[in-house]
Design a protein around this nucleic acid. Structure first.
Length: 285
DNA sequence: TCTGGGGTCCTAGGACCC
DNA sequence: TCTGGGGTCCTAGGACCC
């Protein structure tokens, strides 16, 4: 049983937390999600700053948090895990291998089950193995960007620059898992519902839809994604719905549908997006 | 593991053009 | 006519995170 999420309440609580962080003297705040942020601070007593942050957040919201201190964003992020619950942990170049060296690569931020499995196939199972693996080997297996980035991850190396430029969303989507599988004839209607929700989201954003993505999970639990760039950007739910329906029909698969998703990739903002300063997922150095 | 929802980014292949 | 290389766009798919 899952409970519905009260998004407005979470948004409000998150805003209070972030404002509390921004009130820390000299702090630069890079928001990572509802409940997580990098706080960039210069100074010689990071533990004191961490203490203050936890006290201020508790006072403002009644919420406890943990703080990771690090000399890179990767180390700070991972340190947070060791700080939980309700504590502080410091992880630096000096202590990295002592703390992380013998741990599985899966414990790294950005290494999931799949990559850790592929690494294991190369004989790389621990963080130390990854740190000392040859770039060439990693690049061959994971590509010229991802390979070397993984090596850096193994060493805890990453940028330490905290960037408070507000995040500009790329897309908004809605998806639903149906309590009862849909028959093909029901898909058009369902897609219209999702398209209408998506248009509400992009209207709030003030940017039109340039590309439509359709996600279909069939009852046997396999999923396909299809997308199509529109001839011209649109605000019309009907255009988005029709495009999604076309993509569905083009699959030529009439098995029952468990999930449908419609996503609108938006026109880039005036001046385009920030030049990528990260590799990998959002917020990842 | 038994699977909800909202996101991002990377890689690779084919089409197309110069 | 044939061949080759490089760049860009589009799309599919994979992987990861909160």
């Amino acid at each position: 049983m899952l409970l519905p999420v009260d998004k407005p309440a979470y948004d409000a609580a998150s805003a209070v937390v972030m404002d509390t962080l921004r009130a820390v003297p000299g702090a630069v705040v890079e928001v990572l999600g509802w409940d997580e942020a990098f706080v960039g601070v210069h100074g010689d007593d990071p533990e004191a700053v961490a203490q203050r942050i936890r006290a201020d957040v508790l006072a403002a919201t009644d919420l406890h948090c943990s703080v990771g201190i690090g000399d890179t964003k990767v180390r700070a992020k991972i340190a947070t895990e060791f700080g939980k619950p309700r504590g502080t942990f410091r992880l630096t170049r000096e202590t990295w291998f002592e703390v992380m060296g013998e741990r599985p690569t899966k414990d790294l931020w950005g290494v999931g089950p799949r990559i850790s499995q592929r690494l294991a196939a190369l004989g790389v199972t621990t963080v130390r193995d990854l740190a000392t693996a040859e770039d060439g080997l990693l690049a061959t297996e994971f590509g010229p960007q991802t390979g070397p980035w993984l090596g850096d991850l193994g060493r805890g190396e990453s940028s330490s620059t905290v960037d408070d430029t507000p995040w500009v969303p790329r897309a908004h989507g809605r998806e639903t898992t149906y309590q009862q599988d849909l028959e093909p004839e029901q898909v058009d209607d369902a897609v219209r519902v999702l398209a209408a929700q998506v248009v509400g989201d992009i209207r709030a954003e003030g940017r039109a839809c340039a590309r439509v993505h359709l996600k279909v999970r069939f009852a046997p639990f396999f999923t396909v994604n299809r997308s199509r760039k529109l001839p011209e950007p649109t605000w019309e739910a009907a255009v988005i719905a029709r495009t999604a329906s076309d993509l569905y029909r083009a699959l030529g698969d009439d098995r029952p549908v468990r999930l449908l998703g419609v996503r609108a990739e938006m026109v880039p903002p005036e001046g385009g997006y920030e030049p990528p300063r990260t590799h990998g997922r959002r917020g990842m150095p």
